[in-house]
Design a protein around this nucleic acid. Sequence first.
DNA 1: GGTGCCGGGAG
DNA 2: CTCCCGGCACC
Length: 494
Amino acid sequence: MSSGKRLAKRSIIGARVCCPHPSQDGYFFPCAIQATRTGHSGQNRYSVKFVDGTVAEVKETELIGQGFRSIASIGLKKGQKVYITLSGKEVQGIVISHQMNDEVLVAVSGQEHPVLHVSRRIQEVRLTESRKSARLADHDTDYVKLANIHAHTQKRAVSGVIDVPSSNPRKRTSASLSEDVEAMDEQIAAMALTSLSCSPVPSHITRLQEVEMWAAGSEGGHSSSYSSWDTDGSWKSSPSPPSRLPVSAVPTPVQVFTGNSTDEGIGLEEAFDEPSDESSPRKKRLPSRKVYQCTWQACGVVSATRSAVERHIRHAHLMRQDNSDSDLSDDHEEEFYYTEIEVNVDNITDSLQHMNMSTSPAPTQSHMDMVRPPHEDPIYKDHQYGIRPVESTFSAPVNIPQIQRSLSWQASTSGTNSVSLQSQGYRSIFYQRQQQHQAASPKSPTYLCSTQRSSKGRGEGRKCRKVYGMDNRDLWCTQCRWKKACSRSFDSYA
DNA sequence: GGTGCCGGGAG
DNA sequence: CTCCCGGCACC
């Protein structure tokens, strides 16, 4: 944009549009129109330039953007990077599914919160960034780290996958899951690894992977660049911003939201969202506390205590009237149907209110899952892994086998650089948890809620020192570093 | 001896 | 405030 030649006011040249990237099979990427000409058939053809410098000539009908086709006219493939508005902020996400009814399930990831699954109408999904928020900038940072770690692992595919939502996902067999894994690996990984240097966390990447990659990426020496539209309308490309790994962010379960499109009042979004008041430098250090959300399909009831949510699940979903006075049933089945949410104390009141409003039991309470015995749940079969994902209302559960695969390749590829330090720190948590849960019960979940420390005697929880070791003191929570009461709860669940 | 963390001090 | 650490109670 320094040609000095002034473009006509309405010139299409330079317009930001999106079109399928020639080397990214069907995935739409932002690009800028460089030139236009009229083809033989009278149809306009456009020369566009992508972020990565790729120039392609495309037909007018391939362009998505103002004056061209609208996003609503296309089908979004899973893995497509998109932007949506979440609580008034624009966030990056990855398409998990684009349903026939034009509903798009998007996985959004942030710094101090789990991966969110957000549903949006196709019209509300954008292929390009419409504005740059501080929050989004942070996301960019994280995603660059992901790109870094991908590069570090010599482009080995992250074995994450988006589970194809089916009418009844629970009936899917392990075999079909595995097939999906294989089928999607190539596609998704290719997108994540190649020109998508600023790609968001692929939704299919489990929380574990995500954390590990974050951790690993923060030390990444690989200079991947990230690009975005600058305010002057030109592409800006810069080296990876300094990493700001949220070390203190304890892995928390994937959160699933059946968020409506109005962007209002989703509890976790409140915590996720940053208040306009940025004046306090200590914002990110706000103490947080945990609430417990029922993950039974279409429920989402939030309780302040674990026992409360367990009671809710036991009575409302498991239809158990027995054990009414104990916190857990004999088989602890209710443990699988809630998840822990960490919210800032400042936000918690609002969060709870909002969550109760926006994720209150949906009218689909009569879901067929209620009549399906738990042992038919494929998820149950995966408990051998000791990892229990939260199920999505949109039937896009995290795929368990991937976690295993991820662990294995992470283990085999770590140690090539300083990356391994932090990722190992996190990995150890999960390994230890796995072992503990396996020992405790074959059904024991991993992503489990930490106990409130106050209810446990001192030393019963697992602290940063134990988890990370003295060598990784920088991974400890601040409290532990200061020899104060650990602010994290590595639940020993024993 | 290792660990978790209270209490208190320095800046 | 943040950051650090002596020292104590547990294990």
